[in-house]
């Protein structure tokens, strides 16, 4: 009974954060801020949903745990690769104050 409630609460938190992550990538002004909202919220959302299902169905628990570990490792890596790629092809980050981009000069120096 307690496990049942715990699983349902985890799934509810998970789907709400999945929704907030998608809303984040819709509302943010540039690629990097979108990546921030997308990566964090969807990672916790997917982790929480998957583990919630694992708690509701105890015989599936080990495999859902494996999926959760895989998501937690792979999501930051892919967003890091995408951020680096976007900066290399010259997408400027959105800034309210000028001159906060300390990575800009580095990527120009590497090309020379």
């Amino acid at each position: 009974m307690i496990l049942n409630i715990l699983g349902n609460v985890l799934i509810t938190i998970g789907v709400i954060f999945l929704f907030l992550g998608a809303l984040g990538i819709f509302r943010m002004p540039d690629v990097y801020s979108r990546m921030q909202a997308g990566t964090k919220a969807t990672t916790l959302g997917a982790l929480s949903t998957v583990i919630g299902v694992g708690i509701l169905q105890p015989e599936w628990f080990w495999k859902t745990l494996l999926i959760a570990i895989f998501i937690a490792i792979s999501n930051p890596i892919s967003s890091h690769a995408l951020a680096r790629g976007s900066h290399k092809i010259g997408i400027k980050p959105f800034m309210k104050k000028e001159g906060l981009d300390s990575y800009e000069n580095v990527s120009i120096e590497e090309e020379k």
Binding site: L18, M35, G38, T42, L82, S86
Partner: peptide, 26 residues
């Protein structure tokens, strides 16, 4: 507006569908 934006959206869609498939299985 740019290709990167579309890829970020795609990346999120795949994570959402991974979780969605598990939920569907349940």
């Amino acid at each position: 507006p740019t290709t990167s934006d579309r890829v970020v959206a795609l990346d999120n869609l795949t994570t959402i569908s991974t979780a969605g498939l598990v939920l569907l299985g349940f």
